[in-house]
């Protein structure tokens, strides 16, 4: 077993409705047989559009959502099988940073309470020592120690996000799941927070599972990337290579659709590329076939297996079968 995070065959289906008065039962395969690995101190980007299952997959890694199937290992810990007691151990090693800086901090708790609570709950330390650590952490994320007694509503979005990052690091984890950590921020502040995360990663030797819909952010932060579509990983590989030479037609569509700040790079998408189908009723075979310019008869019937057409590259597409 490697030292980093390994996930294999992860699946999660949400069931809603059904029962006596619940209307027709709806089953959504949010995550469908997903496998990936993040090396110790590595950073994997999980990219995809809304509803592709990337956030669900991330929460399954932390067991914030209980997966239906799959194996999750981090270092020597079997996360998927961990009991109550072991989960507490995992909480100290893997932490999460959230997207919405307004919803991720308790409005009724001071920054001091927010930062020292994890230390007290895990019996690390309390009182003056906990305050001291909270103060150190605040300066590490670029905030003044003086803000300990303040409430979240007194801060801007970027500052709140720094507090959220500080809280995640209070237990000194070695791995961080970041769920769209800069998506709610303005461009100028987004760059500040990205730089902070990169600094912390290098200084504290953190591993990262970085979820984002923004290809630019992923390229900037991650070495490896996995592209998700309708609950499945369609392609993964090293970021530079994958963005330069995408193999899966969906990755190509995503890259072509993401605008770059350069009028010379204007693209005219000549084909109508369709809508993302509903996850409760995904197309048979390859889920991308209704939007795919290269769709073949086989794509409508058989789900493509993951193959490796080049070193370090994985793709699930019949073009490479």
């Amino acid at each position: 077993m490697s030292d980093g995070l390994t996930v294999s065959g992860l699946s999660k289906t949400f069931v809603s409705g059904g029962g006596l008065l619940g209307g027709p039962e709806q089953r959504v395969r949010a995550v469908d047989d997903v496998s990936f690995a993040v090396e110790e101190q590595g950073s994997l980007g999980l990219v995809g559009e809304s509803g592709c299952g990337k956030s669900t997959a991330a929460r399954c890694v932390l067991r914030l959502i209980e997966p239906d199937a799959g194996a999750i290992h981090y270092a020597d810990i079997d996360i998927a099988k961990a009991g109550r007691h072991e989960l507490v151990r995992i909480r100290r090693r893997i932490q999460i940073v959230f997207q919405d800086p307004y919803s991720s901090l308790n409005p009724r708790r001071t920054i001091r309470q927010t930062l020292t609570e994890p230390l007290r709950v895990h019996g690390v330390c309390a009182g003056r020592e906990a305050d001291e650590r909270a103060g150190q952490m605040l300066s590490e994320v670029g905030l003044s120690r003086d803000v300990l007694n303040r409430y979240p509503h007194e801060f801007s979005g970027g500052q709140r996000q720094r507090v959220g990052i500080a809280r995640a690091l209070m237990l000194e984890p070695s791995f961080v799941v970041a769920d769209e950590p800069v998506s709610a921020l303005d461009v100028s502040v987004q760059a500040q927070v990205l730089r902070l995360l990169a600094d912390l990663r290098d200084r504290r030797r953190l591993g990262f599972l970085f979820i984002s819909h923004d290809l630019g952010v992923i390229r900037h932060f991650c070495k490896q990337v996995a592209v998700m579509y309708l609950g499945r990983i369609v392609e993964q590989g090293p970021v530079e290579e994958l963005f330069r030479e995408p193999l899966h037609p969906y990755t190509r569509l995503l890259l072509d659709s993401s605008p770059v700040p350069d009028p010379a790079a204007r693209r005219d998408l000549s084909e109508e590329t369709g809508e993302v189908p509903s996850a409760s009723n995904p197309p048979p075979g390859c889920a991308f076939h209704p939007r795919c310019p290269h769709a073949m008869p086989v794509c409508r019937e058989i789900r493509p297996a993951t193959t490796s057409p080049a070193p370090n590259r994985l793709v699930a597409c019949h073009l490479y079968g």
Binding site: L87, Q95, I96, L105
Partner: peptide, 10 residues
């Protein structure tokens, strides 16, 4: 999300 954060913090 702060409730989720709390769960993640054990």
């Amino acid at each position: 999300e702060f409730i989720e954060a709390g769960r993640a913090l054990g």
